[in-house]
Write a protein that binds this DNA or RNA. Structure first.
Lengths: 217, 217
DNA sequence: TGATATCGGTTGGTTTTACAACGGAAAGGA
DNA sequence: TCCTTTCCGTTGTAAAACCAACCGATATCA
């Protein structure tokens, strides 16, 4: 467990917690540690998630499978990333997604109540505030995605998306973390239609771009 | 303040808290109470929200205004409802929405840290768990909305939407809380296009409906 | 170097949606 | 009752997006 302390301290859950406090905290919170091999499934859609996971090593994927069997990758979780927190804390219903192991992974699972129960410790409030911030920030992200998806035309989706990115990156020249196909998936449109729309927007001098680098005018 | 206790106890924030504990809790948490007249604006997009609101009486609206000045109603908050919690706890950035008073309103404003600071009280963990559940449940709701909006065809949006409602209501005969225009707004499509799509789906025996009552086959 | 794969742009035909306009049914008020 | 408003469905046309296929550029690797 000790060898993962550096990763844990980098996670949002243990932000502003000092290394010295970790042994005691983990002893109280009692996360369970589990190891998974690449290709295995951690959670199956339909399961009820009573814990959330923190990836210490390896990589896992959140995937959604529709009726016709094709799977869609919703997120890639890397070390220090967490997953399932909303389902664990909402304490309602079953998972609409599955979690697959991409690279051999070590995962810590936390019980929501165990975290809340440490409130009386000196580090308790910080831990709780971190957890709240994680949940709240997620809501803001989802809100932004909804704003993008609510646009009916591709050009409006693109502009909304880029303006939100711009607000995050604080500069006119944007590097976005997607290739065309991924960007199209995020916007909920066809790749070729996105390419066409981008070309027209460049012609109309709304923006300029090269590969995944964009500039808004 | 005392006269609002019944409303407060009905809110998700004070769920499972007993009336007897309220005076002490509110004394510690120190919410500020403010009164607003219909037509006034509580928060303006661009403000930074360091508190969240709980509506004790009256009604307020969350509205989004785009560049061209037309406003879109995102939510109607009634007594016992809360707003701004995600922005308050994320402690980041500025509001992308405004909050308007529809009917003369009394609102309690809570500071996030003040709530967390009560963790040591007997009722503290319950209060914190409530807050987490509020944030987490909101994420799940937003996730579902994203699932609907991600569908590219109107019929798929309708089916996804109705299937999710069905999962909530646990029966085949659904009563949805929207009229056509509102349903179209939620799905992100034209009202008339929605009507046409519904008509075709009825013809294909995918579902039946009358006004806002739906049955899935 | 040649073979292969990935990525992004382009094009043309097809499908779907948007948009605007109209009409009928139902509800509510004067 | 009449008038007005609201709600929902229908229609035809225009606009937009989808979809499949193809092409060239670039990268990777044997």
């Amino acid at each position: 467990m000790e060898k993962f302390y550096p990763v844990l301290l980098k996670s949002n859950l243990f932000k502003h917690i000092s290394l010295a406090d970790m042994p005691m905290l983990l002893d109280k919170v009692e996360p369970s540690i589990r190891y998974f091999s690449a290709g295995n499934r951690i959670w199956q859609a339909g399961d009820s998630a009573k814990e959330f996971g923190l990836v210490c090593a390896g990589k896992v994927q959140i995937v959604k499978e529709n009726q016709r069997g094709n799977r869609m990758i919703l997120a890639l979780i890397e070390p220090a990333g967490i997953f399932g927190e909303a389902y664990a804390y909402a304490a309602a219903g079953t998972l609409p997604v599955s979690v697959d192991v991409v690279e051999d992974a070590t995962v810590l699972f936390f019980r929501p109540v165990k975290l809340i129960a440490q409130a009386h410790l000196p580090q308790g409030p910080q831990l709780i505030q971190n957890m709240m911030q994680i949940l709240a920030t997620k809501s803001l992200m989802l809100n932004q995605k909804i704003e993008v998806l609510s646009q009916r035309k591709i050009t409006d989706k693109v502009l909304t998306f880029l303006q939100l990115e711009q607000a995050k990156q604080h500069r006119n020249h944007l590097v976005i973390p997607y290739n065309r196909q991924e960007m199209a998936d995020f916007l909920g449109v066809e790749r070729s239609a996105l390419s066409t729309a981008l070309g027209e927007m460049k012609k109309e001098r709304l923006l300029d771009y090269h590969k995944n680098e964009f500039t808004l005018f």
